[in-house]
Computed example of a mutant assay.
Amino acid sequence: MLSRLRTLAVLELVNIPLFAVVLFGVLGLPPTPANAAGFALFSVLLLEGSAYWWAKAAQVRSRASHPAGLPLFRLLRAANPVLLAAGGVVVAWQLTGGVPWTHTWPGAGLAVFALLEHVNYFHVQLSHQNRADLARLWRTRRLHRSHLARDLARQAGREPLPR
């Protein structure tokens, strides 16, 4: 489990420069306000995800009751919707400007991806990458609270500690 948590943390970080190189280098997307805003939102959410997985790995390693940094994640859970809305305004503003699709739609897609990452980390688990996750989804036929959402609830005393 510890190696899976570390892998998740590293992959979230690696995806930031990888996407930058592919989108802006290989595909040559212009760094317009919409594309830059979408990429910035995407990057911020991936950084938050990586930070959580590192904290979770440290918790597992030390057998602590909670991962470190939960007050910061509580703040991010409240701040992210404001950031996502601000980025959405930038993208929407450029969508109405009559510019080529490459100037806006990639940024819009990245902003949507960032929104989905926020939901995936702070609310319900949308990402199912291994057999255990897929089996649980298939068995229960519903999405489950994310690991971070459960950790935040436990720290607030709204959910019991796992056994």
Results as ranks from 00 to 15, higher is better:
residue 25 G to P: 08
residue 26 V to S: 07
residue 28 G to Y: 03
residue 29 L to M: 14
residue 29 L to R: 07
residue 29 L to A: 14
residue 33 P to A: 09
residue 33 P to I: 02
residue 35 N to T: 00
residue 37 A to I: 04
residue 37 A to H: 00
residue 38 G to P: 00
residue 38 G to H: 00
residue 38 G to F: 01
residue 39 F to K: 06
residue 39 F to N: 05
residue 40 A to I: 04
residue 41 L to P: 01
residue 42 F to G: 05
residue 43 S to I: 08
residue 44 V to K: 05
residue 44 V to N: 10
residue 44 V to R: 11
residue 45 L to Y: 02
residue 45 L to F: 05
residue 46 L to A: 02
residue 46 L to G: 01
residue 51 A to V: 05
residue 51 A to S: 13
residue 52 Y to C: 05
residue 52 Y to S: 11
residue 54 W to Q: 15
residue 55 A to F: 12
residue 56 K to F: 14
residue 57 A to T: 10
residue 58 A to F: 08
residue 59 Q to T: 10
residue 60 V to P: 09
residue 64 A to H: 03
residue 64 A to N: 01
residue 66 H to D: 09
residue 68 A to M: 02
residue 71 P to V: 03
residue 71 P to I: 00
residue 72 L to W: 12
residue 73 F to W: 07
residue 74 R to C: 04
residue 75 L to N: 08
residue 76 L to M: 13
residue 79 A to R: 06
residue 80 N to D: 12
residue 80 N to F: 15
residue 80 N to G: 10
residue 82 V to H: 08
residue 85 A to G: 06
residue 86 A to G: 11
residue 88 G to M: 00
residue 89 V to Y: 13
residue 90 V to F: 10
residue 93 W to V: 12
residue 94 Q to E: 14
residue 94 Q to V: 04
residue 98 G to E: 06
residue 98 G to V: 12
residue 101 W to C: 07
residue 101 W to M: 09
residue 102 T to M: 11
residue 104 T to Q: 13
residue 105 W to K: 11
residue 106 P to Q: 05
residue 106 P to C: 01
residue 106 P to D: 05
residue 108 A to R: 02
residue 110 L to D: 00
residue 110 L to Y: 00
residue 110 L to V: 00
residue 112 V to E: 04
residue 113 F to S: 04
residue 114 A to N: 03
residue 114 A to P: 07
residue 114 A to H: 02
residue 115 L to D: 02
residue 119 V to K: 02
residue 122 F to I: 04
residue 123 H to D: 14
residue 127 S to T: 15
residue 128 H to N: 01
residue 128 H to E: 03
residue 132 A to F: 06
residue 132 A to Q: 05
residue 132 A to H: 00
residue 136 R to K: 08
residue 138 W to P: 07
residue 138 W to Q: 09
residue 139 R to H: 12
residue 139 R to Q: 11
residue 140 T to F: 08
residue 140 T to Y: 14
residue 142 R to V: 08
residue 144 H to L: 14
residue 145 R to E: 14
residue 146 S to P: 03
residue 148 L to W: 12
residue 150 R to Y: 06
residue 150 R to V: 14
residue 152 L to S: 05
residue 152 L to Y: 07
residue 153 A to F: 11
residue 154 R to Q: 15
residue 157 G to Q: 03
residue 159 E to I: 05
residue 159 E to K: 09
residue 160 P to Y: 02
residue 161 L to E: 15
residue 162 P to Q: 05
